[in-house]
């Protein structure tokens, strides 16, 4: 999946000369957490977060605080340089940037201009979609030999039962290197017939296991 598929294209931005007060208003009114700071050519020259802005604002407990601090230009508190991504980057790769750098958002830049933004929340939503847990489905977990042709065989068993597959995840078996765990979310309320077919075909079913946990 590409960044351009998940990015938000309508981005709220400010010029570097905008005041901290304007940034505070934008954050509160639009309920956003990050504002890319762009110059007249739409180049991203900095970024401010809601925390940067609130840290710079005077405390509400301090009556004598200089309110004029809010009139300072935003460029005095913005972070730079900014890590940006490209619309054709893979979502899987940018997930690693979020994890490694602990950023809250990544501006998307193409040909030097800001074209979108991806937030941590967008990233998580994409991962939820990949797991298929947002759609009506049953969860089936199968231990599969790590060999060519096995997936084709398994999917044809689902196909014969006219069961639509919502999502598939594959991960290594923790103890046996030559096996994978295949997690399928299938669009059926009644997975038992296909589970029986899989067992007949010789596959070990990890779930459903009616007596797991029971003696």
């Amino acid at each position: 999946m590409l960044v351009e598929k998940i990015m938000k294209k309508n981005v709220y931005t400010l010029p570097p000369t905008a005041t901290i007060r304007e940034a505070l208003q934008l954050i509160n009114n639009k309920r956003i957490r990050h504002i890319p700071i762009i110059d007249e050519t739409k180049q991203v020259i900095g970024i401010v977060s809601d925390r940067d802005v609130r840290d710079a604002s005077p405390s509400i407990l301090d009556e004598h605080a200089k309110q004029n601090v809010l009139n300072k230009p935003i460029k005095t508190i913005m972070s730079y340089p900014v890590v940006t991504i490209h619309p054709l980057d893979f979502v899987e790769d940018i997930a690693k940037i979020f994890y490694d750098e602990a950023f809250g958002c990544l501006p998307v830049v193409s040909e030097g201009e800001l074209v979108g933004i991806v937030t941590e929340k967008d990233m998580l939503y994409t991962l939820i979609q990949l797991t298929g847990t947002h759609m009506q489905s049953s969860h089936i977990e199968i231990k599969v030999p790590h060999e060519p042709g096995k997936l084709a065989e398994i999917f044809s068993i689902f196909g014969r039962r006219k069961i639509n597959i919502v999502s598939i995840l594959i991960y290594p078996h923790q103890k046996e290197d030559d096996y994978k765990i295949l997690v399928i979310r299938a669009q059926t309320i009644h997975p038992q017939p296909v589970v029986d077919d899989l067992k007949i075909a010789g596959y070990e079913i990890i779930w459903p296991q009616p007596l797991l946990g029971a003696e």
Partner: peptide, 9 residues
Amino acid sequence: TGRHLFPGT
């Protein structure tokens, strides 16, 4: 729980 059972929600 929908962790395993249909419809998952």
